[in-house]
Amino acid sequence: MHVTDVWDAEEDFQGFFAERLAPAVQEVGLAGQPDVHFSPLHRHFVAPGAGS
């Protein structure tokens, strides 16, 4: 599975992962580590009416 998220800063994701995601994954017993890559966002488009 491939998931793309857009975060304001890499540190924001790292905090979310450490404080919320990792404990939840451990609690349900999922094994392994995600393969996480960070790339700069070059362009951001939000369709009218879709929010920001």
Rank of each mutant, 00 (worst) to 15 (best):
P34L: 06
Q33V: 11
F45T: 09
A22N: 06
A50S: 15
M1S: 14
A50C: 07
A47V: 10
G29H: 06
D5C: 11
D12M: 05
A22H: 05
G32Q: 00
M1Y: 12
F45R: 08
P34T: 05
Q26I: 00
H2N: 08
A31D: 10
F38P: 02
A9R: 15
V25F: 12
Q14A: 12
A9C: 05
W7R: 11
S39C: 01
E10Y: 03
G29S: 07
A9G: 08
D5V: 11
A22S: 07
D35P: 00
E10G: 01
G49A: 03
G49H: 03
G51F: 04
V46Y: 12
L30I: 15
A50L: 04
R43T: 07
V46I: 00
G29A: 05
V6L: 11
L21P: 01
E27G: 11
F17K: 08
H37A: 11
S52P: 05
F45L: 13
F38L: 01
V3S: 04
G49N: 00
E27R: 14
D8G: 12
V25Q: 11
E10Q: 15
V3C: 01
D12E: 15
H42K: 07
A31G: 13
P23G: 10
F16V: 03
P23W: 10
H42V: 06
A24M: 08
T4L: 13
V3N: 05
D8N: 13
V3G: 00
P34D: 04
E11H: 06
M1L: 10
F13H: 14
V46F: 12
E27C: 01
H42S: 06
D8C: 02
Q26G: 08
Q14N: 12
V46C: 09
A18N: 04
W7N: 07
G15P: 00
D12Q: 14
A47I: 04
G15E: 14
E19T: 11
P34E: 04
P48R: 10
A18C: 03
L41K: 09
P40H: 01
A50G: 14
Q14D: 14
D35F: 04
Q26A: 15
Q14M: 05
A31Q: 13
R43P: 00
D35V: 07
R20Y: 06
G51R: 04
L30N: 05
G51C: 02
E19L: 05
E11M: 00
V6A: 12
F16D: 05
V36K: 02
H2D: 09
H44S: 09
A18W: 00
L41H: 03
D35Q: 12
A9K: 15
H42G: 14
L30H: 08
A9M: 04
F16S: 06
T4D: 10
Q14T: 11
G51M: 03
A24R: 06
V6R: 10
A50T: 13
V46A: 14
E10L: 02
P48S: 11
V6M: 09
A50N: 08
Q33K: 14
D12K: 14
A31H: 10
E11L: 04
E19I: 00
E10I: 10
